[in-house]
């Protein structure tokens, strides 16, 4: 009971609060928002995000350029401007855009786009993992979260939400924008005819979000600091790729060795979702393991991360 005399005597005294406390789901958004806020305060984040926007703009204007050239393919030459003007054959550029970059609104367009953006995602995740998650373990902030009316699941979900929003800002949302753009410059029936592509993009983005956010939280809770995080992600994403290429393309071992590269597995799962036949995977000379094997590895990876995080957070609850 508050002493009524004190209540009147000073404006700086303790005031009771009367209000309703909500359930455990509102706090997860607060956790996600705080993590995103911490990330957005890093200048490096904005630099790398700018780079990812440039990749998006390259694809965006590449698609536009392709349509523009298709309309002028009857012309023999296009005179380019600039300091060194020269005549360019539209067919040459069109061939480059359609075959090399696959900017044709097909499954390859979106899979390639997400693949290229993946490099930026990897670098940013490696650098921000400690700020968003590792610090909670390193500076003992986890008891701060877990002493509130939320469970470990809400904490992990909140962090996954933050990482997921960030990943989707770089991959899924721009890929959907490319899909919408292609519909505008092609025909309206493109949207309906390629609904599978749209759903595939969403599935691919969701799979990347779930896998990478769990992988990031698991590795960040393990190594905590930025430099070890960068080293772990380099081993997983760069060294893994180099080793699989050396084993399969160099030593001609079984193509299943490619499964050690998690980004390649996600790429395969994405193609599966986008409906690309396995034999149409590019480049054609590169033998790839089956879609199901890639999905299985991703599933194992997700389950392992969940079990590891459960154990890790339980241990923190006990010792913190």
């Amino acid at each position: 009971m508050v002493n009524p005399q004190l209540e009147k005597s000073s404006l700086l005294h303790y005031r009771p609060w009367r209000g309703e406390l909500s359930g455990s789901w509102r706090p997860t958004w607060a956790i996600a928002r705080t993590a995103l806020g911490l990330l957005s305060r890093r200048k490096l984040f904005w630099g790398l995000y700018g780079l990812s926007v440039m990749i998006f703009l390259f694809f965006f204007y590449g698609q536009y350029l392709q349509v523009f050239l298709e309309q002028r393919v009857t012309e023999e030459n296009i005179r380019s401007g600039g300091l060194f003007p020269k005549n360019i054959k539209p067919e040459t550029i069109l061939h480059q855009l359609q075959n090399a970059l696959q900017l044709n609104g097909s499954a390859d367009t979106y899979a390639n786009f997400i693949w290229f953006e993946g490099y930026i995602v990897m670098v940013i995740l490696a650098l921000i993992g400690s700020a968003a998650i590792g610090n909670d373990f390193h500076h003992g902030s986890l008891p701060f979260y877990l002493s509130k009316p939320i469970g470990p699941f809400h904490y992990i979900f909140g962090k996954c939400l933050a990482v997921g929003i960030f990943i989707n800002l770089i991959t899924t949302i721009p890929a959907v924008l490319l899909f919408i753009e292609y519909g505008f410059i092609d025909t309206w029936s493109y949207y309906w005819d390629n609904l599978r592509l749209f759903l595939g993009i969403i599935f691919y983005g969701s799979l990347i979000t779930i896998t990478l956010s769990l992988l990031l939280i698991a590795t960040a809770s393990w190594v905590k600091r930025t430099m070890p995080m960068v080293m772990i992600w380099t081993v997983m994403m760069v060294l893994g790729r180099m080793i699989q290429r050396w084993l399969v393309d160099g030593l001609h071992l079984r193509k299943e060795w490619r499964l050690i590269d998690i980004w390649n597995d996600l790429y395969l799962a994405g193609h599966w979702a986008l409906g690309t036949p396995h034999e149409a995977l590019r480049p054609p000379w590169q033998m790839q393991p089956s879609y199901h094997a890639a999905l299985l590895v991703i599933g194992i990876c997700i389950v392992t991360c969940i079990f590891y995080l459960r154990k890790k957070i339980q241990a923190v609850e006990i010792v913190a």
Binding site: N135, G140, S141, L142, P143, F144, S147
Partner: peptide
């Protein structure tokens, strides 16, 4: 309301 012994602060906030 729980006040933990460890710092339990979130750097950056």
């Amino acid at each position: 309301g729980y006040m933990p012994e460890a710092d339990a602060l979130i750097p950056g906030l």
